[in-house]
Amino acid sequence: MTDKKKTTIVLFSGDYDKAMAAYIIANGAAAYDHEVTIFHTFWGLNALRKDENIPVEKGFMEKMFAKMMPRGADKMGLSNMNFAGFGPKMIKDVMKKHNAIPLPQLIEMAQEQDVKLVACTMTMDLLGLKQEELIDNIEYAGVAAYLADAEDGNVNLFI
């Protein structure tokens, strides 16, 4: 065991802005020398989706889910002022102007900083997401693994 402090974040939301907040906190916590875990569940799993179509075997419902959910972090909508997809374009423009880092790069940076990205396997099954469809170098786990990190966490967030 190390004496490092721990930050754990549950990313439940599949909204671009909320995921951005989660990843900014995660990167900040990593810079604070914390051991950081982001546990992705439900719609938050979409942040880990690859942006290309991966041919995997799916049932009817799973195919429907796959079609309707954003394929990857860059395709996610906003929690507010989404305006049927126009909102994200506006915010990405403003972000560029202010030098804010887009979500896909925030995720990359988190991986470079050894933030542990975890995908919840139970909700992956519900949404029909397969491991091949998610980005590389992530872990697969359930509630117990999350709690093991969270119970000695100094910062625990649900976003």
Binding site: I24, N27, A31, Y32, H98, N99, A100, I101, M109
Partner: peptide, 13 residues
């Protein structure tokens, strides 16, 4: 300079 949160702290680290 010119970098937005959280970059200054990440780079400092």
């Amino acid at each position: 300079k010119g970098l937005a949160c959280p970059m200054p702290i990440v780079k400092t680290k």
